[in-house]
């Protein structure tokens, strides 16, 4: 399998108020050509810093990377011609129309007037911007402006498109619509590298994901593979008992052969078990026998949040 992004030990730290913060602490990534690669992690995990290094906006303190056949450190200028980047802020100029924005972007990549206009026309159709093409971007809705942002990133036909938190701030309808655009771009052969802190987004959109936390990659694989590592189902028990009982319950279940892993957090006992449906009666019997009060019980398939929780000891929602 051909890799379009390969990084080795990327590091970056910042000095703020005399203290050194290690934002990215040795990141190794391998992104395959033609896939949607999801970069998942809580805010402040180092996703954007990593993205900025890969898009030549920040120089890494250490490590190396090859993107689209270009060495990041040796040929940043050539690399810029092959990648597209849509930042969290967007990047479209609100004082200009979609048309003016797109044509200028093409010209900055060295296209002549004619080619820039032709490509702008194609993108205006593809991203459904015809109705607003001559209006100033300042008058666009959030979804319209986001589509223009992504179109700007595609103006020079990059092989690899970076999207930093592309759906943050969008309503559910526009979010779904942008997911469709991303899938369409992937189907046309563009590799998409996107960061997100939404679990469902990574799960629904990405062919493979990397989970980042506190400057490091904690797991990498397809959503299905990662969830399979959890192996089995998740049983969540809401206990009515006090601290002593919780300890007792944790101890009790940790020793059961069908429980792969047990953990306790905020009044809930979380069990990773084989064949949840079959073990539920056994769990209930055991609790009854030990006289531990039960308020709620639920059984679910593992989610990416379970993967995150297992790797980092925290839930992504609370991270």
């Amino acid at each position: 399998m051909e890799h379009i992004v390969l990084t080795n030990g990327l590091k970056k730290s910042f000095k703020t108020q005399g203290k050194t913060v290690e934002a990215v602490r040795g990141v190794d990534l391998a992104v395959r050509r033609g896939e949607v690669f999801g970069f998942l992690g809580p805010n402040g995990a180092g996703k954007t810093t990593t993205l900025r290094m890969l898009t030549t906006l920040l120089t890494p303190d250490a490590g190396e990377a090859t993107l689209a056949g270009c060495d990041l450190l040796k040929h940043p200028q050539r690399l810029r011609e092959r990648i597209g980047y849509v930042s969290q802020a967007g990047g479209s100029d609100r004082g200009m129309s979609a048309w003016e924005n797109l044509v200028l972007q093409g010209r900055l990549f060295g296209m002549n007037r004619h080619n820039a206009a032709a490509q702008a026309k194609a993108l205006i159709l593809a991203f459904d911007l015809e109705a607003i093409v001559d209006r100033k971007a300042a008058t666009y809705s959030g979804g319209q402006r986001r589509r223009l942002d992504v179109a700007l990133g595609m103006m020079h036909r990059p092989q690899l498109l970076f999207l930093d938190e592309p759906t943050t701030g969008l309503d559910p309808q526009n979010r779904a619509r942008l997911w469709e655009e991303v899938r369409r771009l992937r189907d046309s052969g563009v590799t998409i590298f996107l960061t997100t802190h939404y679990l469902d987004e990574a799960d629904a959109l990405a062919d493979r994901i990397a989970i980042m936390d506190q400057g490091k990659i904690e797991a990498e694989g397809s959503p299905r593979e990662l969830k399979k590592q959890i192996a089995g189902d998740v049983v969540l028990l809401g206990l009515s008992a006090d601290g002593a009982h919780n300890e007792k319950a944790l101890e009790l279940f940790s020793t059961q052969p069908y429980v792969r892993e047990a953990s306790y957090e905020q009044g809930h006992l979380r069990l990773y078990v084989h064949e949840g449906e079959a073990t539920l009666p056994e769990i209930l019997r055991l609790l009854d026998h030990a006289q531990i009060g039960l308020k709620t019980i639920s059984l679910s398939q593992p989610t990416l949040d379970d993967v995150f929780l297992r790797q980092t000891g925290r839930s992504l929602q609370e991270a």
Binding site: A89, G91, Q105, D149
Partner: peptide
């Protein structure tokens, strides 16, 4: 204002 809108960042990843 241009920095906040991400315009300067967009220009900085062009080969200009």
């Amino acid at each position: 204002d241009e920095i906040r809108q991400g315009i300067i960042e967009r220009f900085r990843v062009t080969p200009t």
